[in-house]
Structures are given as structure tokens and as C-alpha cells.
């Protein structure tokens, strides 16, 4: 089912003093996000992926075209809070998203703004904390947590608004490998177990491998899209646009080019070992 639909979206930032930014950030883009899917938007810095993310919950409004969220037009000001609580947006810097100096009070911030009754907020906060495995930290101060933990609190703060979809704008860019794993497994869990639609925006291709569908953006346009398998098979296209592919995929791609008989390119180390064993045995 179609959940978010982006139709002929174009966007450019206002000219800023002398520096006229004439180039559009997003050009005539069409995209659908299906209910319940795990979509990954991949692209390097300046590809327009973060700008697109901010369109999903109406933080930015289209210069041209339309964005519909669950049937609601994001340009409709009256629906602003409905849209923002339907599509939650998690940002890059975990430090700058937390409002309160106690974890559980921070998570309550969203539902409090929505006017949810006290008893229900308490319930939502506890559920959200459990969903991100941070229940034991409910009374901690955010500045004493690790980056990965802070980002999970930020996610819980969004979950407490009970959105149908979460958009995460490079949530792992500032984290160490451990924090990245924590965050990725948390959002995978939210998608699989809670049925929340996830749109993950990232430049790490190893995170994209776990998605149901990958959209690659470049220069404000969609370069290619499909399942991770389909997308990462296009090694040369990705490389020519300065994007990485998993090392497991790259080695098999190179060998294939050399004439080695490899049918499907693997995405992770285990399938890569299987493929190479087949070849080398």
C-alpha cells in the first residue's frame, strides 16, 4: 500500500544574499514509500537526500509538485501536526535533538505537545523505552549516555508519538561502530516487530544492504532503485558516482569482469564465501 507519495517534487533553497544558489536541490522527483517497508535512501553529501527527508514530514514544503503522507497534503497547514506525528523525523546529531535533562521526560516531550493525557503519556514513554531497549536508563541524564544510546533515546522520543513511519536522516553518521549497530538493529526491530514504516537515509552502504528497497540519489535525482541485490549489482554505475559497494560485492564483481563465472553478486561476507568457494573449489 502506498503510504508516502512524492509527485514531481522540485525544491531549491532561497537565494542567500550575493550567493545565488541557482541549482535546484531536488529536480522533478517521483517516489512512493509503501506501508510497512524498510526503504533506504543512499547518496553522498549534497545529493539532496536530506532535503528530501525533510519533505516527508512537511518540515520543508515543495517548490513544485506535491508530497502526500497517508493521503494528507504536506502543504496543508491545518494538517501540520497530524503529518508530523504520522511521520516522525530523527536527525543526525543525537546531542541536539534531546530537550530535557532526564531521559523519560525527554521522551514525553512529543506526546505532551500532542496533548495526550498524563496517564497515557506515562504508558507510551515506557513502551517507547522498551522498544529501543533503554528502559533501564529512564532516569539518566542524556549527556552522560553514549552516542548510540542518545540516538536511541531520540528514536524513542519519536516512537512515543506513535507514528506510522519514521524517517531517519543519517542517524549513524556521527556514531562509532558499536553505536551504529545499536541504532540499525533498533530500527530493524521497529520495522519487523512493530510494523513501522522506516525510511533510512544514509551514506553507509552496509546499512542499505539490510533494507527491503534501496533508492540511490545523486544530484537531486533518483539514480537507480530496486532491491539491495539489484542496486548493488550495478557496481560500475555506483562507483562512477562516488558511492561505495560492500567489499564482498566488489571482489565478486571484479572477478566476474575477469571472466569468472559468478551469477549473482553477494552482499554479505557469508554469501561471498559461498560464491567464492563455488568458484575456487
Amino acid at each position: 500500500m502506498n503510504f508516502i507519495s512524492v509527485e514531481n517534487l522540485s525544491f531549491k533553497y532561497d537565494s542567500d544574499g550575493e550567493k545565488l544558489i541557482e541549482t535546484s536541490v531536488i529536480k522533478n522527483l517521483n517516489l512512493r514509500v509503501n506501508q510497512g517497508e524498510f526503504l533506504c535512501i543512499l547518496g553522498h553529501n549534497g545529493s539532496g537526500k536530506s532535503t528530501l527527508a525533510k519533505h516527508f514530514n512537511g518540515m520543508l514544503l515543495p517548490c513544485g509538485g506535491k508530497v502526500y503522507v497517508d493521503g494528507m497534503d504536506t502543504a496543508d497547514e491545518k494538517l501540520c501536526f497530524d503529518i508530523r506525528s504520522t511521520v516522525g523525523l530523527v536527525l543526525q546529531n543525537p546531542d541536539n535533538q534531546l530537550v530535557a535533562s532526564v531521559v523519560e521526560e525527554d521522551i514525553a516531550f512529543g506526546p505532551e505537545n500532542l496533548g495526550v493525557p498524563s496517564a497515557e503519556i506515562r504508558e507510551r514513554v515506557e513502551n517507547a523505552l522498551k522498544a529501543v531497549d533503554m528502559y533501564d536508563y529512564r532516569n539518566h541524564a542524556p549527556h552522560k549516555l553514549s552516542g548510540g544510546q542518545k540516538q536511541r533515546i531520540a528514536i524513542a522520543g519519536i516512537i512515543a508519538m506513535e507514528p506510522k513511519c519514521i524517517v531517519l536522516d543519517e542517524p549513524t553518521a556521527m556514531l562509532d561502530p558499536r553505536g551504529r549497530n545499536e541504532v540499525i538493529s533498533t530500527i530493524t526491530k521497529l520495522n519487523r516487530e512493530y510494523g513501522i514504516t522506516v525510511v533510512l537515509i544514509t551514506h553507509y552502504m552496509d546499512e542499505a544492504v539490510k533494507a527491503d528497497r534501496v533508492v540511490v540519489m545523486d544530484n537531486g535525482e533518483i539514480l537507480t532503485q530496486g532491491t539491495p541485490q539489484q542496486v548493488f549489482a550495478q557496481v560500475d554505475l555506483l562507483k562512477s558516482h562516488c558511492l561505495d559497494v560492500p567489499q564482498a560485492t566488489e571482489i565478486c564483481h571484479k572477478l566476474k569482469k575477469l571472466g569468472v563465472d559468478i551469477k549473482t553478486l553477494p552482499l554479505d561476507e557469508n554469501s561471498c564465501v559461498d560464491v567464492l568457494m563455488e568458484v575456487l573449489r
Binding site: 552496509d206 560492500p246 567489499q247 564482498a248 571482489i251 561476507e269 561471498c272 564465501v273 567464492l276 568457494m277 575456487l280
Partner: peptide, 9 residues
Amino acid sequence: QITKVTQKL
């Protein structure tokens, strides 16, 4: 990843 793969091989 590539080191892991070759080690398994």
C-alpha cells in the same frame, strides 16, 4: 569485510 572473507576461505 574482505579480510573476514579471505580468512574464511
